[in-house]
């Protein structure tokens, strides 16, 4: 599959752009957190498209953001189950 570029994204409507980015991010996130991939991808899709494109190119920045999102999600779930 060809890498997703800003030019390719720009040709699609905004909602479709997020779907396109999600399709690329989801498999990568699934490798790290199979059970949380859908939720984590959804959380990350709120980030600017330009930053998401960068994360697709940089495993390191993607991992950092994914871990951040997982930590936030788990803290939230722990808080919910405590109440």
């Amino acid at each position: 599959q060809d890498p997703l570029t800003a030019t390719m994204l720009a040709t699609a409507p905004p909602q479709e752009q997020k779907q396109m980015l999600g399709e690329r991010l989801f498999p990568l996130i699934s490798q790290m957190f199979p059970d949380l991939a859908g939720k984590i991808t959804g959380m990350l899709l709120e980030i600017d498209n330009s930053e998401l494109l960068h994360m697709l190119e940089s495993q390191e920045s993607l991992e950092a953001k994914v871990k951040e999102a997982v930590a936030v999600l788990q803290a939230h779930q722990a808080k919910e189950s405590a109440t």
Partner: peptide, 21 residues
Amino acid sequence: PAFVPGQNVYAAEFVPSFQKS
């Protein structure tokens, strides 16, 4: 708490197209 993109636990879950019917 301040809204931080990528940390919003209420964000909608992403469904990849291969899982859609």
